[in-house]
């Protein structure tokens, strides 16, 4: 315990690097072996650091005079026509006095640092929340960026941009690979748009577009909430995908979706007219018949089904299906 006291007394000297090498080594060894002195040393260092940050103040003349009087030092008046050079002794005393004041003040601050800071309760007001958007490219102010980087995201294609060397503003541009999980209600606008985008972003869809369509079908089939964006995205897959298996799934999904947009209808008509795979055409017949039967008679759908039923070189089963679909229509 006595050793601890002696060691703590040497902390200021250690801070000012005034200890000789041996004492310094002994003090450090003690700090490492004694947890209490270690904590005290850290606190002292923190106090020292805080004091460094404090602005240097010149004591008011009256205070200085009083201080000097108390310690028995008389301040000589400065002759006006002579440039005075303060004596080293006086300067040393003054610096020591300032150090005492600073250390005393710092100790006071340190001693009261654990006191809780009480703030008057205030009503919290949330002014706005900026929604996160998924974008191909984005410019962000550094002030809007959290200083915490979570995990180790892959950063590539880094560019440093300093458009104006005369100011302090710089830019850092990079590609970042980020795995994002979006959770929300199936009818949220953002979720609908995201689903539609994912389905059409064929090359990056994992495991595949067919799986994406399956998910869309499970999520939105027979939903009470019509989602034209989803129907439109599936319609575009039906129009554009080169693989018949994908198109079969797309047309199957369109049949179950509650929304029949003009884009949906046109995609189905195009599939029935031109798709080379008979299974796609058969399913397009069913889907078009459903559209034609809902609400008012859809003349374009009826005309396409008629045309298909009459087409000599069409598969007989497709023709029969088209005719049967027309027969069921009861406008």
């Amino acid at each position: 315990m006595a050793e601890c006291s002696a060691m703590r007394e040497s902390f200021p000297l250690l801070l000012t690097e005034s200890l000789d090498a041996r004492s310094r080594e002994l003090t450090h060894q003690h700090i490492e072996s004694c947890s209490e002195c270690g904590a005290e040393w850290l606190a002292t260092k923190e106090t020292w650091r805080l004091m460094e940050a404090l602005p240097e103040l010149t004591p008011p003349p009256r205070m200085r005079q009083r201080f000097l009087a108390e310690i028995g030092v008389e301040e000589k008046p400065v002759e006006s026509n002579i440039l005075s050079f303060p004596k080293r002794t006086w300067a040393r005393w003054l610096s020591q006095a300032a150090a005492v004041v600073i250390v005393a003040g710092g100790s006071y601050l340190y001693g009261h640092r654990t006191q809780p800071v009480r703030l008057a309760p205030q009503q919290a007001t949330l002014n706005s929340i900026q929604p996160v958007s998924i974008a191909e490219s984005r410019v962000v102010k550094s002030s809007a960026l959290s200083p915490n980087i979570e995990g180790r995201p892959d950063i590539e294609n880094v560019q440093f941009i300093d458009t104006n060397p005369n100011d302090d503003e710089v830019s850092l541009s990079f590609d970042i690979t980020q795995h994002m999980t979006v959770t929300g209600n199936r009818s949220d606008k953002s979720m609908v748009q995201l689903m539609a985008y994912v389905m059409q972003n064929e090359d990056k869809a994992q495991p595949s577009t067919t799986r994406a369509i399956d998910i869309v079908k499970q999520t939105y089939a027979n939903s009470h909430q019509p989602e034209p964006e989803i129907a439109g995205a599936v319609a575009r897959v039906l129009r554009n995908d080169e693989h018949e298996g994908v198109r079969i799934k797309a047309v199957d999904t369109l049949k179950t979706l509650p929304t029949a947009t003009s884009e949906t209808r046109e995609a189905l008509i195009a599939a029935l007219k031109n798709d080379p795979n008979p299974a796609v055409r058969i399913k397009a017949v069913d889907a078009l018949a459903k559209i034609a039967a809902s609400g008012q008679l859809d003349q374009a759908a009826v005309d396409t089904l008629r045309q298909k039923a009459m087409q000599d070189d069409e598969n007989l089963y497709v023709r029969t299906k088209a005719a049967e679909a027309l027969k069921k229509l009861n406008p």
Partner: peptide, 24 residues
């Protein structure tokens, strides 16, 4: 063999050769 569409075999106690032009 499937010209376009899925192939599903739920319980095969035999050799299976399955091919589709597109589909799972």
């Amino acid at each position: 063999q499937n010209g376009g569409g899925d192939i599903v075999v739920r319980h095969a106690a035999s050799s299976v050769s399955a091919e589709t032009r597109s589909g799972d």
